[in-house]
Design a protein around this nucleic acid. Sequence first.
DNA 1: TTTTGGTTCGG
DNA 2: CGAACCAAA
Length: 451
Amino acid sequence: MTSPSIVWFRDDLRLADHPALRAALDRDEPVIGLYVLDDESPGIRPLGGAARWWLHHSLTSLAERLRERGSTLVLRRGPAEKVVAELARDAGAGAVFWNRRYGQPERDIDAALKTALRDDGLTAQSFAASVLFEPWTVATGSGTPYSVYTPFWRACLALPTPREPLPEPLSIPGVSKAPPSDDLESWELLPQHPDWAAGLREMWEPGEPAARRRLHEFLTEDSSSYEAARNTPSAGATSLLSPRLRWGELSPHTIWHESVQAGVGGMFLSELGWREFAWHTLFHFPDLATKNLRRDFDAFPWPTPDPEHLSAWQQGRTGFAIVDAGMRELWQTGYMHNRVRMVTASFLIKNLLIDWRIGEEWFWDTLVDADGASNSFNWQWVAGSGADAAPYFRIFNPELQAKKFDPASRYIAEWAPDHVSDSPPPQIVDLGETRKAALQAYEAVKGASRR
DNA sequence: TTTTGGTTCGG
DNA sequence: CGAACCAAA
């Protein structure tokens, strides 16, 4: 009589460097992989449209890889705590393993489930796999979370080096009769009417094998130009690994160690550091997506958003070339170059005076790489309300940014060709005036913090 | 991961 | 008169 192990996959859709899967294999019982689509548990943020597209394909890949190795992926939908416990009971499982999540609603679910499973006599165990340093292991001398990046990352680097990645298992024993699974198609994760995903299909191949290929391509071919060209959006110098990390097709440990081995360090690893900083910040401030981290920003007098301005921004017809190019790249590919993310976000907040949360929601819906921490963390960084944020008065000028980082208009020509040829859309605001208005609005925050 | 506007300095 | 530098936002 077997008592299978359940590996509950979440934001870790891979087989390599998967501590929960490793623990299941070490237990020497058949393994059932499980993914739960949970749009119901309290506090869980439903996935955006681009994320659902990615998830569909990454799950397809993961299921195939588990099958090749002898196991299976069971798909279930509903409140995770209930769904996982149900499957454990129905499958006669003896153990459930998962890799940790760090958002508050997710932690609440996982903690409650762990207790319930253990009360039923099962093994329930969680592992560190999605961040290099767990949030409770990094604190200032006085025990508070870091609020400035440089000392935060220095403190991380002073900790023991993150563990080496675990090898990918070649064989994963499965159960003889797999428990019932939803049909992935029934989740309707792919856009239908209309199908807006053509650009995503062209740019991305979700799944662990493609993720590993891209990592090696970056480390062997592209990384030498990274530091010099990372800010040039047309250069193709960035790693494009963000969605791989978001979905856990690669672990940060794998990226860390393979980068070090390839002699890629400094700036690139520091970007992993910002990702860590975002997750640690979310751990300590669970409301990061909705509440100003610096509460004095609650005094910021956001005007009623102009719906025309907002949709011009969303659709890339603000009349400012690099903004329009970025917003169209985002819509078509589910991705935007980091430099342009800063410019488009700054434009929404500081030239259109639209609340950062509205921009955050749009990115959440359209990016394939938006995770629970980085998206809101970075929007707050641009707004000036976040951790180690850009000072509010740091207002990007989209025309200057284009001149500096896209001098030959190559990026603009690729994504917004109308801006380099016939008739660009008219500019919807005056940069000088809106800049002045934003600085004036900032006075309210300064007044509030002095009080 | 900034911009602007002012001043200074060399040609 | 432009480049370089700096303070303030």
